[in-house]
């Protein structure tokens, strides 16, 4: 593997980070769209969508980009963070009391939580698809895993449901700061559209996670 990106300047890394982050945010919308099909009593929409996502070649290409995006976003995030920790070898006795938005300081931690969720999530669905893992429920007649039932099965376990909700909230927190930050990193900061960006970011980081959370809640009631 070529590690030359390690030598990229800090701003180049940031630009990649935000581009990939924004790309992931678009993906989250798409993913939510599919997930909302779970709300239907009839499993065909969801399973069709899952089937389409699993077989279409365009989507397969995107899948690679998506995985690459995740890996890169995470890797660069970690690299930047390691450097940031090193840039102040002697810490302050009194922690900074500068008034800044609370969650902005914890991106790496919220990111890490999202990462853990991602792994669990992949294990639950993607591994089955790849055949690395036995599906806990019977497959569909066409041989593909029945993700509709998998999802319902998972949400029927309270532990998983709570975990899922917590993770999604953390993701929301990650996104809450991310959106505005990504624009800033890309050099888009202008007083005439800053507030729109900010509002959009807030709306996105509330609506999307709410959408995801809606599903287990819906099942509960």
């Amino acid at each position: 593997m070529n590690f030359s990106f390690l030598r990229f300047s800090s701003i180049t890394k940031k630009i990649w980070m935000s581009l990939l982050g924004l790309f992931l945010m678009v993906f989250l919308i798409l993913h939510l769209g599919i997930n909302l099909c779970l709300l239907r009593k009839d499993p065909t929409w969801f399973n069709d969508a899952a089937y389409f996502m699993g077989t279409n070649y365009v989507i397969k290409v995107f899948e690679v980009i998506l995985f690459g995006g995740f890996i890169f976003h995470i890797l660069v995030g970690i690299i930047l963070q390691l450097r940031n920790w090193r840039s102040r070898p002697v810490r302050y006795k009194i922690n900074p009391r500068t008034d800044t938005p609370f969650f902005t300081k914890y991106m790496i931690y919220t990111g890490a939580v999202v990462f853990i969720f991602l792994v669990i999530h992949l294990m639950n669905f993607y591994f089955i698809k790849l055949g690395w893992k036995e599906s806990p429920v019977p497959s569909l007649p066409n041989g593909h895993p029945d993700f509709y039932v998998v999802a319902r099965w998972l949400f029927s376990q309270p532990f998983y449901t709570v975990l899922y909700i917590v993770f999604i909230i953390v993701l929301g927190v990650h996104l809450y700061h991310s959106f505005r930050a990504a624009f800033q990193s890309l050099g888009l900061n202008h007083k005439s559209y800053n507030s729109s960006i900010e509002t959009f970011g807030i709306v996105y980081s509330i609506v999307i996670p709410l959408g995801y959370i809606l599903i287990p809640i819906y099942y509960l009631i």
Binding site: T104, R180, N189
Partner: peptide, 28 residues
């Protein structure tokens, strides 16, 4: 020096109130 993670503490503490929009401009 470390990297920017857009916490904007710099802007708050700048005695001359320099805005983080300069950072965006530099990124651009």
């Amino acid at each position: 020096f470390g990297n920017c993670t857009n916490t904007f503490a710099c802007e708050v503490e700048c005695p001359k109130l320099i805005s983080v929009s300069t950072i965006a401009r530099m990124n651009r």
